[in-house]
Every structure is written in structure tokens, then in C-alpha cells.
Amino acid sequence: MSEPLVLVCAGGTGGHLFPAEALSVALAARGVTVDLVTDERAEKYGRAFPARDIHIVESATIGSKNPFALLRTAATLGRGYMKSRRLIRRLKPVAVVGFGGYPTLPPLFAATQFGVPTIIHDQNAVMGRANRQLSARVTAIATSFPGVLDGNPALAAKASFTGNPVRPMVIEAAATPYDPPRGDGPFRLCVFGGSQGARVMSEIVPPAVERIAPGLRARLAIVQQAREEDRAAVEAAYAGLGVAAEVAPFFVDLPARLAAAHLVIARSGASTVAELSVIGRPSILVPLPHALDQDQLMNAATLASAMAATVVRQADFTPDWLAGDLSRLLADPAPLAAAAAAARAQGHADAADRLADLVVKTAGLGS
């Protein structure tokens, strides 16, 4: 008898693909085969996704109010829906799981049309737009934060809090205990802006480091993600300051880099917050501004309220502000150990297993 098949659907960014990867590994351990449905952006994922097969389905973001743009979007989603119908007919999955992003709309909608059990997982402290459009139709909802749907009793009735699944390499990195900086020893700083990078980190962090007193600055060892177009300027800035720095557009082994850090400066996407929590590292978080749902601000607030992170709005994230904060921590790093412990207390290392159990139950494969 062949193994049951689950279709895992995710938008092609790390914030959606990382928890999808974690679930896929947990389902494989339960004897369930996984296929991934995504878009062409997944090619930049940085590593092989643990699925039997990967299916690219046409999709488009519903954003513009221009009638012609809306027609193009509708046509693209329609093509994705028809392809999804053919996939589901051919593959006969026992369940379809969506992790958000508009590429999940066609396959999840098609699955509900065929009566296939469906589950959506939302990574953020506020539900994303694609998941909101699917929430009334799906069989079950999993959330990364408790109480996300308390204001909607109909949705809350089919919701389960699982936490945000993290990749196996994050679980491995979490085995490294936090090693606080000491005296005049090195101070390891990890700077990144999510799977797509963030230009603001390249614009703010190097000039902030320049403003730090030379004696303190000499202790810094920096790992920084920078967009390819910003990389040379960032490397030159640190080289001119005599600061040890490794700069790259993407770190496949980012969880290990987080585990080695004394302090992390980052955006506050859902996967970033989950990984900081499970690994247990203090952070300065700069939520993405102008987001319609303010999801990154809400994510960051969960760590800030636990005294695990400092949250600064991008408008206030200036070289002078950052230089002052880093100088304070370089001179007195004592608060970092408490923040690391507070972050770890917020982590849910078993989230992938909890979500896998929900998928198995919803698919009728057992308890």
C-alpha cells in the first residue's frame, strides 16, 4: 500500500517555505509523502525542499485597483486554479496544507471544491490576507500565536495553536547555549533582513559602527546579509574601519549564525521571530514599515513584551540611535543574557510535530 500524500502549499519566500519545510520533515517521519505547490520564486530558496515533487502553479497578488490589472490577476489565478484541479485529480492527496501567500489560493480553493480536507497555517500575530480569504472555507486553522482568532468565534472554533514550525537546522542550532560576551572579548553581531534582504540594514549599520568609540568597535565581529548591489559598499565600509565582517546576500546556514551571535539585528518576519525564540537570542528588531496588516510590528511586540527584544520603528532606526544602543551593550552586556533567556522562553520547538499531528488528524489518518 502506497504512503498517503499531502500537498503542502506555500508562497515562494522563506517566511512561508521554512515552516512548510519543517512540516514536511515531520510528516515524512510519520510515513506521509509530501509534494510542494509553490511559485517560481522558490528557486531562490537556497536549498533543496524535502518533497517528492515540486509543482509550480501560476499565481498573482491581489493588490492594484486598476481594472486591467485586476483582470490580469484574475486570469492568472484562474489558470492556477485549473492547474490545481488537475493536480488534485491526478495526485489524490489526503489533505492540502497552506502556509499563506497568494500561490496558496488556487490549490486550497480547488481542494475545498473537491472536498479534500484542508488546513491553513498562519505564521504571524495577525492573519495574512491570503489566509483570511481561505479561512471560512478550510477544515482547520493552525496559528503561531495564541488568541489570534479570538475575535471571530466561527474561526476560533476550528483553530488550534501550534506555534510556528522551524526547520531542523534551527532545532540543531538551539542546542548551542547562549554564551554572553565578556569583558574585552569579542562581541558577535548578526545582521539580516529576511530572505529578500533589507537595504536599510546596509544603510544604517555600517555608519552606526563608525560612530562607536574605537576601543569598543574593535571588539565587533559582524555577519551581515546585504543585497548583491549593496555588498561591495558594506564590505568596504567595514574594511575601512578595521572591523572583521562577513557579508553575503544569503546565508544558507543562518540558524547556526544566529546561534553564534551575541546580538541579532533583523526585521521581524514570522520565521525570524520563531527562530530567535527557539534558539534563544537577544535582538534589535526593525519591523517592515508601511505593511497593510502591520504583521511584523505585531510579531516583534510579542518578543518586546517578554523583554526579549528591543523594537525600533524604521524611522527611528538611525546611525546615531544604533551607535548609542550598541555602545551601551558593548560597555555593559549584562542585559543580553536575560534577554536571551526570555526569548527562549517564548519558543515552541515542537511546533512542527504539533502541526503534523493536526494534519494527520484532519486527514483522517489516525490520532
Rank of each mutant, 00 (worst) to 15 (best):
L329D: 07
L322M: 00
D316F: 00
D332F: 03
A308D: 10
F317A: 07
A337Y: 02
A306D: 01
V311Q: 06
A306I: 02
M307A: 15
D316Q: 14
T302P: 01
R328C: 13
A301I: 01
R313G: 13
A300P: 07
A323W: 09
P335F: 03
Q314M: 04
R313K: 13
A300Y: 06
D320C: 07
A337F: 06
D325S: 13
V312P: 08
A301Y: 00
L326G: 06
A300W: 00
L326T: 01
S327T: 15
W321P: 05
G324R: 01
D325W: 12
P335E: 02
Q314P: 05
L336Q: 03
L330Q: 03
P319I: 00
A323L: 09
M307D: 14
G324C: 09
L326A: 10
S327N: 13
L322Q: 01
T318P: 00
V312C: 05
M307W: 07
V311E: 07
V311S: 04
T302E: 01
W321Y: 11
D325P: 01
G324S: 10
D320W: 04
L336S: 07
D316I: 05
L326S: 03
A306R: 02
R313Y: 05
F317H: 06
T302V: 11
D320F: 05
L329I: 07
R313D: 14
